[in-house]
Design a binder for these strands. Structure first.
Lengths: 335, 335
DNA sequence: AGCGGGGCGACAGTATCTGTCGCAGCGATC
DNA sequence: GATCGCTGCGACAGATACTGTCGCCCCGCT
């Protein structure tokens, strides 16, 4: 009858319910769920929600992943996602992709964040298990990820810390934090999160201070999200902060770099360019690379790594910088 | 009645159907889907499957993601996953995590693989969009990922190539490949995939040849998966191959390395260790690192990157290697 | 033109679903 | 300790929806 007809089809309501259920630490009462569904256009009585929940938890497919906290009176329902059901389901391509993603992230991502994704990876693995050709080599014996470069182990962040930090950031809430060995909490305004691979930093202003500080997440022992809003959240400009701050970040002025790669040291650049601006020129014994890059510590690092296989041709400043570093390094080994 | 009662509840059957639907390029007829569901213990008539599909495609939630190819007579149904529905649904923590994952993978993963994950990232983004505090800064303005090191752009792999390669690998099938500019296809036995970050290599044996070769995925112009099985797939040992091959991989003998980090250059090692074996010793002006590492090109690279901030103390062989490289590098800049 | 197969409408019995009502615990409060 | 409010849950009955079967008809193929 009504134009935007309130859906009254069990299947879709059930799907909406499953989708609306909160993740394990949090929980929702049947009344709240009814409200949530109503907002999504699913008119339903509280009783039916209860019936659905009951049906789900006694079902074979979902019984295991539904939790009902019946300790306190308005029962709290939640979904604990050791398993995860996604539509569309797994297939060979997706399973392979997820497996790769897992390999990529493993050396890179902090364990607390990685753990959250486990249901997906598990689903991919179990797909391979299920569709394994009998008696044949397993998928994981056919794939290797051997990242280039040298990875440090991500710093260990105490469980739950990151969740609360994300929450405070997202909702613009102040926090009490217990930093390092301080016994007393300190109140901070969180503004941004900067991920440096192995370490995540939270950019904050301490209560009643004006300057911004960054705190490494692994040094937070405990946090509590408060109800007070962050002051002047709109004034903070992350991009500007990153460029201006003393975080030792790889930002610098853009320069035109010319590098001479000796022998075949630069061959890989043809297929995996530095960036879109690069151009290559074949030399008698080597390759000449020209590219626009930001002059950063990381750039110097990268060049130094090549040792004698790369010579900086231009700009002169960079050439001097590298030459100086090499000279001083050489002194370390001089007899 | 029966012990493992065949489920006859519309909701669960519908869920199973959604889960059983193949992804867009492939498709399934209603009869096939009926079979699939039967295997999962869902007894259902073909007619009902048809009815379900019809209902889904006319529904508001799923109509957009269901495709019916009615060109040929047994209709082919598929699900094209521009959107994705996962249970449990998004919440702040998961959205934040997925957003981070996206940032991690973007500079690292080839575009063809990354595209496959887009539905998930899109879901996370739209969660933020939906729950954005009114008039406040967007989530993406609060988070930055500034990876350490210097990343090359992943090589571009033609769309669909990787999918077929994964498929052949998983099902142990031979392939016809069109490599580089060769007009004629060549028949290969695929054995393994080695991901080096920017480049993925396929380890194969060419038809009627004995030795293993590796082919960079981005150089495959076209592939066709055949029905013939791979020869002697069980004999191939990826780990051994990686260690023995000439792929220039970072494998080497394990050595005990002692490095002298000058000044504060080694401070980060306290929180982000190299590996579990490391031990640190505070010096007057620096840090002494002792660790068990594999002696590889990547290790030398890493050490060279520090320039004059790191001195190799032991082993002597490594010290000589680094010293020699530095010496030769210095000559490049000598007047 | 005939044939086979698949989509789809129809049907009717049945199983299921839904909102309402009311009772019985269970805390909390006074 | 009694009362009050709230919540879970059983019951109910009307209405609704679901299911498998059957058969027609369209379409492509021979």
């Amino acid at each position: 009858m009504s134009v935007s007809a309130s859906i009254s089809n069990k299947t879709f309501r059930m799907l909406a319910l499953l989708h609306a259920l909160p993740r394990a630490p949090r929980k929702a009462t049947s009344a709240e769920l009814k409200e949530k569904l109503a907002n999504d256009g699913h008119k339903i009585s509280k009783r039916s929600v209860e019936r659905y929940l009951e049906e789900l938890s006694s079902s074979h497919e979902f019984g295991a992943m539904l939790r009902c906290d019946d300790a306190s009176q308005p029962y709290g329902w939640s979904i604990h996602s050791e398993r995860n059901l996604s539509i569309p389901g797994m297939d060979a391509q997706m399973a392979a992709t997820w497996d790769l993603v897992h390999r990529y992230l493993k050396p890179l991502m902090a364990k607390d964040a990685l753990d959250k994704l486990d249901p997906v990876f598990r689903e991919a693995r179990s797909w391979f298990e299920k569709h394994r050709p009998i008696g044949k080599r397993y998928w994981s014996d056919k794939v290797a990820y051997v990242p280039r470069g040298f990875a440090l182990q991500p710093a260990k962040v105490a469980p739950g810390i990151a969740d609360q930090v994300y929450d405070a950031l997202h909702r613009n809430r102040q926090m009490d934090i217990w930093y390092k060995d301080n016994a007393e909490p300190q109140r901070v305004h969180p503004y941004a999160l900067v991920d440096r691979g192995a370490v995540r930093y939270l950019v904050v202003r301490f209560w009643q201070y004006e300057d911004y500080r960054h705190l490494a997440l692994q040094r937070l022992r405990k946090v509590r999200v408060l109800d007070d809003e962050v002051d002047r959240a709109g004034d903070f400009d992350l991009d500007r902060y990153l460029r201006d701050s003393q975080m030792n970040l790889p930002y610098g002025e853009t320069i035109e770099v010319v590098l001479n790669f000796k022998g075949r040291a630069g061959d890989h650049l043809y297929e995996t360019p530095i960036n879109a601006s690069q151009s290559l020129q074949k030399l008698d014994d080597g390759t000449l690379l020209t590219a626009h890059l930001e002059h950063t510590q990381e750039l110097v690092w990268w060049i130094l790594g090549f040792g004698a296989s790369v010579e900086v041709v231009e700009p002169l400043g960079l050439r001097e910088e590298v030459a100086d570093e090499v000279r001083r390094a050489q002194k370390l080994y001089k007899k």
